[in-house]
């Protein structure tokens, strides 16, 4: 189904009624799984992702090769050598997550690439050098896909790592950015768009950005569509800005959960915890 992008110029509204710089509804929870060391659930629009973190633990028996991991999905590790914890990411994409009900096998290269990206992005933020000879297992489950999958995976993994209490430099927050009108139209007036849904992702050029905290430093930049080089700057600027918004949202989720846990008495209200300023 081709997306009718011509209507955008009339009302400056996108297919789902958003303006160019609006994120979709983001809903996130942490500590959803009692059994895990850290867990999270994240919705970005209709993209729904669950994440479970175990570790840092002693690595299990060595499995042959890097391509080992969660059942049905791909698993890829990074780090490991030289006194650092290895981050093993496994991604399971549920068969019912998208419209076409595709089966994703173990060796699916796209899934492996996603897993490797999440693993390498987090490796840059987590202080893995504090846990030599150990392993951090991140298991991601995709329940529903509606665009910005990689961004949702990175955000969910970050939240779960916060929940697991793994020391990290800052949040790694991700989102997507795109551009109105396709690559063929060398349209100078093309507007950048924030947070693409599935339909927009299919039709328009877009990229996924992940930044470290509030800085302009880009940890992940993935562009999989053809786009004029002149439009990269605009898209990147919008993407980085979106990541900052996303960081605020993730931060709020963590703080709200923290306050609730103190109220419920799960955590003793200690000396340091009283100083958390809520805004």
């Amino acid at each position: 189904m081709p997306l009718d992008t011509s209507t955008y110029n009339l009302a400056l509204l996108r297919v789902d009624g958003r303006r160019w710089n609006e994120l979709r509804r983001v809903h996130a929870q942490i500590r959803t799984q009692a059994a895990a060391d850290g867990s999270s659930y994240l919705e970005m629009g209709h993209t729904k992702v669950m994440c479970v973190v175990t570790g840092p633990t002693e690595p299990g028996p060595r499995r042959g090769g890097a391509a080992a991991g969660g059942a049905g999905g791909g698993g890829v590790g990074s780090g490991g050598a030289g006194g650092k914890a290895e981050i093993v990411v496994g991604i399971v994409i549920a068969g019912f997550s998208s419209v076409d009900r595709k089966r994703y096998g173990r060796g699916d290269k796209r899934t492996l690439e996603l897993a490797s990206t999440v693993s390498n992005a987090l490796a840059a933020s987590l202080h893995t050098n504090l846990f030599p000879h150990s392993q951090i297992n991140i298991s991601l489950h995709v329940l529903s896909q509606d665009g910005s999958l990689l961004a949702a995976l990175i955000n969910a993994a970050t939240l779960a790592c916060v929940d697991a209490g793994i020391p990290m430099t800052d949040y790694v927050a991700a989102c997507t950015a795109g551009s109105t009108s396709t690559y063929a139209a060398n349209d100078e007036g093309a507007d950048p768009l924030l947070d693409l849904n599935h339909q927009e992702e299919q039709e328009l050029p877009g990229l996924t950005v992940a930044t470290l905290g509030n800085s302009d430093r880009v940890a992940v930049l993935v562009c999989e569509s053809r786009v004029q080089i002149s439009r990269l700057e605009g898209m990147l600027a919008v993407g980085v800005d979106g990541c900052k918004q996303m960081r605020e949202i993730l931060d709020r989720v963590v703080r709200e959960k923290g306050v609730r846990m103190i109220q419920e008495g799960t955590v003793e209200k200690g000396v340091g915890l009283g100083d958390i300023d809520m805004d």
């Binding site: 940890a219 930049l221 993935v222 562009c223």
Partner: peptide, 13 residues
């Protein structure tokens, strides 16, 4: 001058 793909898959920001 058309970008076909960009891949910065993690690593130091």
């Amino acid at each position: 001058g058309e970008i076909c793909q960009i891949a910065k898959l993690g690593g130091t920001p």
